[in-house]
């Protein structure tokens, strides 16, 4: 049964709080910024630990290369830059200097998806999951709330390895009691139902949660899963849930080409789980202008959009 959710803070703000707390006892923890300390919410961290923040200026390629060098010397490195630039401009450094060279850097792609709203396509990252899912030795985590954010950061600190963690910037509700309820490397089952399985990643989990709450009131029984970890992908649990449902829907703040929807679709086809599958995300076109919420609603990343999609899918089952 779905319960009302309390509001948390933006994942980005929680990220800064977690790193500040962790830096108290860990002089090896470094943050590398490319003129992004403000947008990364780490201005306070910089004031408190000036020797643990490395500023490289507006130079994303260099920021990733330098981070790789620092990590090769045992530093725990969090590299902060907008997801758009980190995953496109610095893609070769991510691929070669971090992943291929196995330098354990935590790449924090901030203000990702369409968080920048009206600033337009230069600042949107609709491609980052598609680009990075093809790179070996790079974990991919898209936290939906503060607990998942904290779990992702602590997971890296406990076992540093190359990882890209994708953050939006709006305040998110709490989906868990604490970060201990999140198992990085798995998916999280937030609700179990028999009619439809909804898999959401990142901030659209909030819209999905509200949609599931409404659908349950209308008598539609839904499973809701948070896919916070896309790589490694928890195939076993996804297949188990998929085989027990009538229809499947993925929801993501990303192109429907190459992200969660594509990942799920290829897995189900390969394993012969024949179910109707819907993908909500962004089409391969220049997106409409607007703030994040307006863009979400335009493309159906809204409680209404998700409910409508589920209702239509179930009519055809």
């Amino acid at each position: 049964m779905m319960r009302p959710l309390e509001k948390g803070v933006a994942n980005l703000e929680h990220m800064a709080a977690v790193l500040t707390a962790q830096a108290e006892n860990d002089p090896n923890l470094l943050i590398v910024t490319s003129d992004s300390r403000g947008s990364g919410k780490v201005g306070g961290f910089a004031e408190r630990f000036p020797k643990q923040l490395v500023e490289v200026g507006i130079a994303e390629q260099n920021s990733v290369g330098i981070s790789a060098g620092l990590a090769s010397c045992g530093k725990k490195v969090f590299t902060i830059s907008p997801g758009s630039f980190l995953s496109a401009r610095a893609l070769e450094q991510v691929k070669n200097d971090v992943a291929y060279s196995k330098n354990p850097v935590a790449l924090l792609g901030i203000s990702s998806g369409v968080s920048y709203g009206g600033l337009g396509a230069t600042h949107h990252s609709l491609h980052d999951l598609a680009a990075l899912l093809a790179i070996p030795d790079l974990d991919l985590i898209v936290p939906a709330d503060n607990a998942e954010t904290e779990a992702a950061l602590l997971s890296y600190l406990e076992n540093p390895r190359p990882v890209y963690i994708r953050f939006g910037k709006k305040a998110m509700p709490h989906f868990y009691e604490s970060s201990k309820d999140v198992k990085i490397g798995n998916i999280s089952i937030l609700n179990e139902g028999k009619d439809v399985l909804i898999l959401a990643t990142g901030e659209p989990l909030a819209e999905s949660y509200e949609a599931v709450t409404n659908l349950e009131k209308e008598g539609v029984s839904c499973s809701l899963v948070s896919v916070h970890t896309l790589s490694p992908f928890d195939e076993t649990t996804v297949l188990d849930l998929a085989s027990q449902t009538k229809a499947i829907l993925t929801v993501e703040e990303h192109s429907v080409y190459g992200g969660l929807g594509s990942l799920v679709a290829s897995l189900l086809m390969e394993k012969r789980i024949w179910r109707p599958l819907g993908k909500i995300g962004f089409p391969r076109e220049e997106l409409v202008t607007g703030n994040q919420g307006e863009i979400f609603r335009h493309y159906g990343i809204s409680p209404y959009g998700i409910e409508s999609y589920v209702t239509k899918m179930l009519k055809k089952v």
């Binding site: 260099n62 990733v64 330098i66 981070s67 060098g69 990590a71 010397c73 200097d97 330098n103």
Partner: peptide, 8 residues
Amino acid sequence: SVSVGIAL
């Protein structure tokens, strides 16, 4: 760039 990181 990697060398700068190591030297740093």
